[in-house]
Amino acid sequence: MSSSIPIRPAEHFENLERQAHAARLGMWVFLATEVLLFGAAFALFATYQVQFPHAFKLGVEHNTKVLGSLNTGVLLLSSTLVATGVHALRAGHRKVASWLVTATIGLGLVFLVIKGIEYGKHFDEGIYPGGAGHWFAEHHDRGLAEFWTLYFGMTALHAIHVTIGACVLGALLSSILRGRLGQENAHRLEVGAIYWHLVDVIWIFLWPLFYLA
């Protein structure tokens, strides 16, 4: 871990600082498109919520609230850890950073496992996307199919993002361990962490909509 390869900026950058700025700007532009992608889904949710407030309330009351809330805590903790990891790498503590990134990836996997348990519970009850399953034969409120379809669609889209985020952090972790990522080019971990935080921010809004209110 102690020996690191000297890090130079890419040819078309004057120095590492400019390269870091470009990398961060690129990530923010990408995140803006992600916000618009999820924004469309949130707009759809808002429209159906206004149309079928009663069914959406029933859906929320029937959801796996404790597991969903636990998952919120898992993501908040993971975000705190990876933010600490970025600070550690900037200060030259590569070993600390690598442990923190490992813990972040681990919590991401815990999130996915809990999400899977939740899906399993819904399927057992006969709740499937598109209003399929015997639960909908017993619950007739107009709008319930829309609620559960949006729930599965939006949380699955989010889970895909968690998976991608964990893979990105995994690649960065491998770079840290191989000595290719350190204090000088810590912006690479920064950019990966920013993506992870956005995934957290999206869940921060999914949680109250599908589990609380």
């Binding site: 700025h21 700007l25 803006a32 916000v35 949130f42 975000s79 920064e190 962490a193 920013i194 935080h197």
Partner: peptide, 26 residues
């Protein structure tokens, strides 16, 4: 999260404008 974890508070104007544009459209 955006201000302190993603450090937008200390970022340059270009990043703030990028997010503001997305927020406005949303």
């Amino acid at each position: 999260v955006v201000m302190f974890f993603m450090e937008l508070l200390h970022e340059s104007l270009s990043m703030k404008l990028t997010l503001a544009a997305a927020g406005g459209l949303l």
